[in-house]
């Protein structure tokens, strides 16, 4: 018998701080598999953001910089401009990218910065205790929308992928989910494509990954997979929005 599945080399051999069933760990592994398969570990620099994934620098074996809240695309811009031959990616949550960091992500995308963005959307601020995010679904209860998100007060959930797809500077843009083995395999292909674009000097690439947050959703991890399917995917459809700079 041969080994057909094991921990990728780029994934650190440690226990993560993530809650049981949190799918951040799956997304980390997909990024690590991609780094291994493209053979880019020695020239990859990750940019960790603020939120649950702030400690991502402990979990992937590449060089890292830890960025201020929302500023990862700016930090990545500085690294890539200083070292154009490096492979630079950010790993950001929805509070980070879709709220406090909207200016930085829009302008990095619009400049066509040759970086890869992994954008993890779990509809809330996980690290700080499950507060409402710009991505929180209408009616969704969080610790700061205790009666459910009210559009009169808080507007509508932001579809970042669709917004960013309008920008000429974007080469590749997809939304995927990691709530089933089939979706995980599609997510892997999108993440690998988003890094390949950079390896081939194609410009800006972003993958929005729908992810679960069992703890703050007050669901067990298995129920959380289904909640994502039933509630997130209808509002955040899975698709490749841009491929090779062309709107799909």
């Amino acid at each position: 018998m041969k080994v057909v599945f094991e921990r990728p080399q780029a994934l650190s051999d440690v226990t993560t701080h993530y809650c049981p069933g949190c799918t951040h760990g799956i997304i980390h592994r997909l990024v690590a598999e991609t780094i291994d398969e493209l053979g880019i570990l020695e020239r990859t620099i990750g940019v960790a953001s603020v939120g649950c994934s702030v400690l991502a620098y402990d979990y992937l074996e590449c060089d890292w910089q830890q960025a201020a809240h929302g500023r990862a695309p700016a930090v990545a811009t500085g690294i890539k401009r200083a070292l154009p031959d490096s492979i630079v990616f950010t790993y950001q949550g929805d509070g980070d990218l879709a709220s406090i960091g909207t200016a930085e992500i829009i302008h990095a995308a619009n400049r066509g910065e040759a970086i890869t963005v992994i954008y993890v959307n779990n509809t809330n601020y996980g690290m700080t205790g499950g507060q409402m995010a710009p991505t929180t679904l209408v009616g969704q209860v969080t610790t700061t929308s205790p009666r459910g998100r009210d559009t009169k007060e808080a507007g509508y959930p932001l579809r970042m992928a669709e917004m960013l797809a309008t920008l000429k500077g974007v080469n590749y843009l997809a939304r995927v989910a990691v709530n089933s083995p089939a979706n995980i395999m599609k997510a892997k292909r999108a993440i690998k494509q988003a890094f390949t674009v950079q390896v081939e000097d194609g410009g800006f690439a972003l993958v929005e990954v729908l992810s679960t947050c069992p703890t703050n959703w007050r669901l067990d991890p298995v129920e959380a997979l289904k909640w994502l399917d039933d509630n997130m995917i209808p509002y955040y459809p899975l698709a490749e929005f841009k491929v090779s700079g062309e709107v799909k």
């Binding site: 018998m1 041969k2 080994v3 057909v4 599945f5 094991e6 921990r7 994934l11 226990t15 993560t16 993530y18 069933g21 949190c22 799918t23 951040h24 760990g25 799956i26 592994r29 089933s180 083995p181 995980i184 395999m185």
Partner: peptide, 12 residues
């Protein structure tokens, strides 16, 4: 593939 903690190694 669905394990968030990379607990499982598969042989075939």
């Amino acid at each position: 593939r669905i394990c968030p903690d990379c607990v499982i190694k598969v042989y075939r």
